[in-house]
Amino acid sequence: MKIDHSQPLEYSTEQNKMNILGFWIFLGAEIMLFATLFTSYFVYEDRIGSGPAGAEIFGITPVLFETFILLTSSFTIGLAIHAMRIQRTKAMLVFLGITLLLGAAFLGIEIYEFTHYYHVGATLQTSAFTAILLTTLGTHGAHVTFGLFWGLFIILQIRKRGLTPETANKSFIFSLYWHFLDVVWIFIFSFVYLKGMM
C-alpha cells in the first residue's frame, strides 16, 4: 500500500481516494432518493383525505430542538475532522462522541414526535399525506440510526487501531454522510415543517 504523505491522511492512498469519490457518488444517489421523496411529498401534501393537515399536527418546539441539535452535531463532526487533520486523536474521539450523542438525542425527539402523531391520529394508514410525511421523516431517521451504529464502530476502531489511513478515511466519509443528513434535514425543516405551518 503506497502512502502519499503530502496528502491528508484520509486521501493518502489510492484506495482512500477512490473510497471518497465513491462515497460522493453514493451521495448523488442519496440526493435522488430524497428528491424522489420530496417530490412525492409535494404531490401528496394536500391530499389529506379524512386525516389531519400538516398545520394541525406539526409542533414548532420539537422541530426547533431537532433542528438545533442536528445542526450542532454537524458542527461537532466538523470539529472532529479538524482534530483528525491535526492529529489530535483524543479530541477527535470526544467530538465524534458528542456528535453521536446529539444524534441519539435527535432520534429520541423524533421518536417522541412520531408517538405524538400517533396519538393525534396521524399514522401511516391515515392518508396519503401522513404516509408520505412519515415515510420521508422515517427514511431520514433510519439514516440517522444507521449513522449512529456506523459512527460507534468507527470510534471503536480508532480506539483500537489509532489514526491510520483507513480509520481516517472512514471517519472522513462518515462526516460526509453526517453533513449530508444535516442538509436533508434543512430541506425537511423548510419544505415540510415551515411550509406546512405557514
Binding site: S40, R47, G49, G51, L124, Q125, S127, F129
Partner: peptide
C-alpha cells in the same frame, strides 16, 4: 395499508 397509490384517502 398505506394509501399512496389507492383511490381513497388521498
Amino acid at each position: 395499508g398505506t394509501n399512496f397509490f389507492t383511490s381513497v384517502n388521498g
